[in-house]
Design a protein around this nucleic acid. Structure first.
Lengths: 149, 149
DNA sequence: ACTTGATAGTTGTATACTGCAACTATTACT
DNA sequence: AGTAATAGTTGCAGTATACAACTATCAAGT
């Protein structure tokens, strides 16, 4: 039980590095943080800025500037919400979606490669475990509270 | 299989946030990166700077400055290696070890809390799965190559 | 309608983080 | 001895981060 923390730490670090690597490798150079933004905006349906900033745990002011960069890079759109004019709605441009897909593909390729050394049962077990972890973490409010989903 | 990437992304993000949260909550305010350094220096036996920088995937120059900060904060020691005078050996001070332990405890507490909502078998499955993943990722050299262990 | 309070997002500013290039010091190789 | 490789440090320029203070809009109570 003692080594649970170690197991997760190593895995998380490795995954973070992979993520970073995929960002630079996918053709267009974007930062890790930016890739997380693209990823999450892609997942949500026309989210507000507060939502994404909250999910990613970054300060709204920092996030505001990140969005400005991404808009300037033509990867994201910021549309005023007609029902509440304080709110801006985020979405990916075609180019942004393309890059998000490219990163996605690289990550999936890598995962497939990793899983290729496992048996079918092991693979299923791992995926079920991660899903279980995510559910359990969502339930626990002891420590990490932001994050929807 | 498609959602493997999603599962890992969410989990990794959540864990990263938790990690960051624990840093600020543990009494002494250190950054996430600094906590990773403390963690890894603690794990290794008198590692060199190159080693830790490599494991964490940070540029050696950035790392050099991070170490300077941590030394100034009295959390780390930098000892010249007598067998190779180019090399500096890293270790935690008492205070550094204390803070590392404090973060460790918080993370472990959180994990215990998360696991408390699972059955014994589920818990074992999750831990076995993560261990399996770490091994499999270590084997695969398709993408992420730094990282010992 | 008007005031008050809350919310979404932006900008000023100061600080920290990051990595490339260029450097010093030491070691390894021939 | 001389050359190449390695460990680590600084100069520098660009980026990221978050607190404080701001504008603009909405929501609620009177």
């Amino acid at each position: 039980m003692e080594n649970a923390r170690e197991l997760f730490q190593i895995m998380t670090r490795r995954f973070g590095l992979l993520n970073k690597f995929c960002c630079t490798e996918c053709g267009c150079d974007i930062s890790l943080v930016q890739s997380h933004i693209l990823y999450e905006v892609n997942r949500q349906h026309h989210p507000s800025m507060q939502l994404i900033a909250g999910i990613l745990g970054t300060d709204i002011t920092t996030f505001s500037r990140q969005v400005q960069s991404l808009v300037k890079m033509n990867l994201m759109k910021k549309t005023p919400d007609p029902s509440d004019r304080r709110v801006y709605t985020l979405s990916l441009t075609e180019r942004g979606a393309c890059i998000a897909a490219s990163i996605d593909k690289q990550m999936t390729d890598f995962l497939n490669d990793v899983f290729s050394t496992m048996s079918e049962e092991e693979r299923d077990m791992v995926l079920r475990s991660i899903a279980l972890m995510n559910e359990a973490m969502a339930k626990s409010d002891k420590c990490c509270r932001p994050l929807s989903h």
